[in-house]
Amino acid sequence: MLLRILTSFCGLSFALLGAHSAAQEPAITAPKNVTAGTPFAISVVGQGKGTLYLFGPTQAIKREIEFGKDTPIAGSEASSAGIYQITVCAADCVTKVVEVQPAAPARLGFLLHPSRVPVSTPNAVNGTAIAFDQYNNIVITPSEITFRIAASGEKISEKTVRTVRGVAAFQMDSRPNQGTLEVTASLATASEPRVIQQVASEACGLRMTAAPSGATITLQTDPIRDCKGNPLPDGTIVSFIKVDGAGKSTVDTPIKKDRAIAQFSVSGPARISVACGVVLGNEITWGGR
């Protein structure tokens, strides 16, 4: 009899203890995922008060809450996409995880390289566009980005690329003629134009002529162009080198109006050459056989 009373008493004690523990550990109800910037609510089953902790990419919130009531989380508190940890503590603490997903794409980051590209170069132009929502989260769900390509003197063309993990990239050959190349990336209402310059390539068929003027010789190049006929821009350096009995003389002079000009004094036979970057031009032998 005594044994039965003891056993019953122990069982009742354990039951009461379990019930008491259950009453101390809060149970959190929260959505599994929400869209960035959208308010949502969490609720904690039970009675009494506790402390809510919300940790996210930009947030570390600590707040006193009442159990049994909905606790609102403002959209501004969940605007950064990522995994949020919600912890509620009373006597013990319980944690739940909410995934905040990016909102709809609203902005584009667009990089177009290089700023100056030599003409007629395969795969020389490359663009990378990244889709962001209004809260600067990368939008991972696939979207279609349209690249509108306008090269000076040519028809406009379009290319559509689907984003992968928020990124869309393309490559194209530079055009044969120098001038501007404008590429506009568009997604939904967002549009980002970029302009780069297509510039002449290396000098091609570099030639100079020499004319005497008193005790000096004036050297002038033909209009300096690349192999597609694009003139090299003014300011590009051309090197003239003269070797004669007095030694070697050099001058680096910039192109002006498509040509480069230099003057040397000569004493006896001389050998004169011209170069632009790593491209060599013709050689002139002056005053000798």
């Binding site: 350096i237 007095a246 030694g247 070697k248 003389s249 050099t250 001058v251 680096d252 910039p254 040397f264």
Partner: peptide, 12 residues
């Protein structure tokens, strides 16, 4: 600036 232009003469 592309100016000045300096020539190097009679090197030996």
């Amino acid at each position: 600036s592309a100016d000045p232009v300096i020539s190097v003469e009679n090197q030996s």
